[in-house]
């Protein structure tokens, strides 16, 4: 495979990656369907921003945000069925059960652990030490600007944590499990080693609870943009949207079997961060996964970071003890 040069890198040399917006698949169907799947993402973003900006305090609360999130996911399931991006990613009963198992673990066990050891606890202690008067410049800004800055700060943190996961072996061990998925759908963001799900949950969650309305608007902004990244939905994504925001097309390149492709598009929300830091690839991919698309069972997903760490450590020690002996090394990716 020849691949395509993007900046200094060759994308698609190991596995097929479609590079360039003009080469993407398009929504098939009538005028109404094409109109809906062109403007759906911007329309939802505008609707959610307006809702959270003007909703009275009595309904602008966390439970409303959770309800909207669950309802929106259900709607996206319908969109995956109406306009699938790839038939080879179609949802099966087994995929649904496995996906929901991880969603359930995140909502129950990992959330319970996070309450006692996660960022909520840190935030409580750190915020107690703040001098609030020094933050008046921030809280005096328009609500939408506050929300945007919160999401931007969160995404910069996410970008570097994610990029670190792809470049530092101990972090890669926990993140690699997520890269064994071979197809995308709305719940695939939950698939991965429970350790990684916990680490990602640490983030900066809880630090902005002192700005409840701005934090809810920020959460809504993030959801309206980044929720699509694992979706199997064919959109006619407007070019300007894909220039600014992360899309399902961008994220499929990140999950492709192509090594250089998988080291692209690290952001969660704002793809312009990847453009700034030189890791953006405007493309899409259908063939996903690791090791030629090998399927990893749930059991292996649970123990993989530990067993791989053990194998690598053992090999390292053996090389130190017997420097002359031949042995295979384990690459970071």
């Amino acid at each position: 495979m020849d691949g395509v040069r993007v900046g200094k890198r060759i994308i698609g040399a190991d596995s097929p990656v479609t590079v360039g917006w003009e080469n993407f698949g398009r929504v098939e169907g009538g005028t109404v369907k094409r109109f809906i799947f062109t403007w759906f993402q911007p329309a939802v973003l505008v609707a959610l921003v307006l809702f959270w900006m003007y909703a009275p305090e009595s309904i602008a609360k966390t439970s409303t945000a959770i309800g909207i999130g669950i309802g929106f996911k259900a709607l996206l399931y319908v969109l995956e069925w109406v306009s699938p991006r790839y038939k080879s990613w179609r949802l099966t009963w087994k995929e649904l059960v496995v996906d929901l198992f991880y969603v359930a673990i995140a909502y129950t066990l990992i959330r319970a652990v996070g309450k006692h050891f996660g960022s909520d606890v840190w935030a409580e202690h750190i915020l107690a030490a703040f001098n609030w008067e020094k933050f008046a410049w921030f809280t005096d800004m328009p609500l939408l600007l506050q929300a945007f800055l919160i999401t931007l700060f969160a995404d910069i943190c996410y970008y570097w944590m994610h990029r670190g996961m792809h470049n530092w072996y101990p972090l890669w061990l926990t993140h690699s499990v997520h890269h064994y998925i071979t197809q995308l759908n709305i719940n695939k963001g939950s698939i991965g080693s429970p350790i990684e799900i916990f680490l990602i949950g640490l983030g900066i969650g809880g630090f902005f609870d002192f700005l409840p309305h701005a934090a809810l608007l920020a959460g809504s902004l993030g959801m309206a943009i980044s929720i699509y990244q694992h979706a199997n939905i064919r959109f006619n994504t407007p070019r300007w949207w894909g220039y600014v925001f992360n899309t399902t097309e961008h994220h499929s390149v990140h999950h492709s079997q192509d090594f250089e492709g998988s080291r692209s598009n690290y952001c969660n929300t704002y793809i312009f961060l990847d453009r700034i830091f030189g890791t953006c690839v405007d493309g899409e991919a259908e063939v996903l996964g690791m090791e030629g698309g090998r399927r990893m069972s749930i059991w292996e997903q649970m123990h993989y970071p530990f067993t791989e760490a053990w194998k690598t450590s053992k090999a390292f020690v053996q090389r130190r003890l017997h420097p002359g002996a031949s042995g295979s090394t384990v690459p970071a990716e």
Binding site: K94, V97, L100, A104, Y107, T108, A112, K115
Partner: peptide, 20 residues
């Protein structure tokens, strides 16, 4: 603290088993 989501997922998986 995880009682409500746990009950919800209990119901979802019971339903999914019957469907499958």
């Amino acid at each position: 603290e995880s009682r409500t989501p746990s009950f919800v997922f209990t119901g979802i998986f019971a339903f999914l088993y019957v469907v499958g």
